[in-house]
Design a protein around this nucleic acid. Structure first.
Length: 528
DNA sequence: TTCCGACAGTGGGGTCGCAAT
DNA sequence: ATTGCGACCCCACTATCGGAA
């Protein structure tokens, strides 16, 4: 790949990071478990990086390709190519080549892709080849994502880490902040302020096991309905309305109802946080699947909106009339929200006066479930809005169901679970004595359980295709889950939502496991 | 010294929509 | 037409590091 012209220009601009540098740092970061050392390694890399390299270097370090899909699979990638002896590739050259690769289409596309991959691999050293392979297949796993990169950036530029973190939350993008920091230094952070029209990363909630646990932790608090819909951030600046998702995708065009609702409010400039949900004629929530399908529809929005209309329900205000509310206590932010948004468009809530008032919180949860909603979110009244964080001041509580199911098979794990049987196939007893698969889970296992189940399931194995190990259906496991969903994939027509392992039930035989019939009876609202 | 908050990793199901077959 | 696949929606849980208490 003779690109001498490009490289000569690079030398003059001092930038143009070599891929070998990135590959080496990535390897070192992966090899250490100490967070502080990871930060140090990234800081060193950032000191040498040009601001223009940032849009490539940042995603690469997180193991992501900025282009997204490339259209190359294992078949093309696993062809061995003799590595180059000397590192010469720059990250920009690699980026250009991968972009070209992603744009290949039409007749002979596969062949052309294979040729480009071959060219790239031939120009890469063995270490670079390993890095590229990991990057393209999404298996970098170096224990450092955005949070570590933020610390590294702070150390490299001398900016306070907290300020960098806040700028990232307000910009909604590490890349933007990194670029500004490397180009202009710590002063650049002042440019990142809360702005109507520019989305910020939303605050998230932790899980609490019960209402009493949450109220004990938070004291005086608000208990709010948790709606099972899609999180939205609504921005209005005069006649301009924008709607963003949790990951800051702009979905304004898919939700015409929200533009209308925003323009009806008595305020010209604001940012609101809330949820959209589809309700049926009686005002009860439709299933998450229906809401998600509606919000996901992009092509014929008019028909989708007529068939499944959605309603916005807001629970927080981040900015009103040019005033940034993020650092105000929740009680004050909510007062602003209440001033702006009439009741039916605000989430139902009740105020609870600490643990002594627990029964009020319990009643509210029971009532909320009765109305068909998912659960509650319990919020401290004195806490600021922690954009982009899973703040300890928001705790969600949802009912949890459990079942005793039978392990039908297990899949070999990846990454730190390599060599362990990880992902369990779960079955319930069916009328004819066979087992109907209800879904899979890999959650809830400790390392000890993982080791134990690997041994135990190997004893029960009847087949191993290298990916799935099928076993005799004898091992019973207690599974927690959040509810049932309709499914076209599984034979009973339903699957478990968020299934996770609680414990193994060696005291139970497979014949004592729960049945499909009892499961369906317990969730009649789903199958109706 | 112990505790606990924040992170990364390990994947789950569904839906939509595009591209390849 | 069908099918495979990526990008997003929703998400739970454990292990670990390192600062807070």
């Amino acid at each position: 790949m003779p690109r001498r012209g490009v490289r000569a220009a690079c030398a003059m601009h001092h930038g143009c990071m070599l891929l070998s540098r990135l590959a080496q740092v990535s390897q070192e970061v992966a090899a250490t478990s100490a967070r502080s050392r990871k930060i140090g390694l990234l800081a060193e890399l950032f000191r040498d990086a040009d601001a223009d390299d940032v849009p490539i270097v940042i995603p690469y370090l997180a193991g992501r390709l900025p282009q997204g899909r490339l259209g190359v699979g294992w078949k093309v990638l696993s062809r061995p190519v003799a590595p180059a002896a000397e590192p010469a590739l720059t990250v920009r050259e690699v980026h250009a080549l991968l972009t070209e690769l992603g744009e290949v289409s039409g007749t002979g596309a596969q062949e052309r892709r294979a040729r480009l991959v071959g060219e790239l691999m031939a120009a890469a050293t063995a270490e670079e080849q390993r890095f590229l392979l990991g990057l393209i297949t999404g298996e970098v796993r170096q224990g450092a994502l955005d949070a570590v990169a933020v610390e590294g950036l702070a150390r490299a530029t001398g900016a306070p880490a907290a300020d960098v973190r806040r700028a990232v939350m307000l910009a909604g993008s590490l890349q933007t902040v990194a670029q500004a920091l490397l180009a202009r230094g710590p002063e650049a952070l002042e440019g990142f302020r809360l702005t109507v029209g520019r989305p910020v990363l939303p605050m998230l909630a932790h899980t609490a096991a019960s209402v009493s646990e949450a109220v004990d932790k938070l004291g005086v608090c608000a208990v709010e309905e948790k709606l099972d819909g899609i999180r939205v951030q609504l921005h209005r600046d005069g006649d301009d309305v924008r709607v963003y998702t949790r990951t800051l995708d702009d979905i304004t065009d898919r939700l015409p109802e929200l533009t209308g609702a925003a323009l009806d409010l008595k305020g010209e400039r604001f940012i609101l946080d809330g949820e959209v949900i589809a309700l049926d004629g009686a005002g009860r929530p439709r299933s998450f699947q229906e809401t998600a399908g509606r919000v996901g529809s992009r092509v014929d929005v008019v028909t989708a909106a007529r068939t499944v209309p959605v309603s916005p329900v807001f629970f927080d205000a981040l900015s009103v009339d040019g005033q940034d509310l993020l650092d105000l206590p929740f009680a004050e932010r909510h007062a602003e929200l209440a001033r702006l948004v009439p009741e039916p468009m605000r989430v139902r809530r009740t105020l609870v006066d600490g643990p002594a008032d627990l029964s009020a919180a319990e009643r509210f949860l029971a009532d909320t479930l009765e109305r068909g909603h998912e659960g509650v979110v319990i919020k401290a009244l004195d806490a600021p809005y922690s954009a982009g964080r899973r703040g300890a001041s928001w705790l969600k509580v949802k009912p949890v169901h459990t079942l005793d199911l039978v392990v039908l098979a297990a899949e070999w794990g990846h990454g730190r679970r390599t060599g362990k049987l990880s992902n369990l196939h779960l079955g319930a007893r069916d009328a004819d004595g066979s087992f109907a698969m209800l879904g899979k889970t890999f959650k809830g296992m400790t390392d000890a359980m993982l080791a134990w189940q690997t041994e135990r399931l190997r004893e029960l194995a009847v087949e191993d295709d290298g990916h799935v190990v099928t076993v005799r259906p004898e091992l019973v496991v207690e599974i927690a889950y959040d509810g049932l969903q309709r499914s076209t994939r599984y034979p009973a027509g339903v699957t478990l939502r968020f299934a996770r392992v609680v414990r193994y039930r060696e005291d139970k035989a497979a014949a004592e496991a729960d049945t499909v019939a009892t499961l369906l009876a317990a969730h009649r609202e789903v199958t109706r």
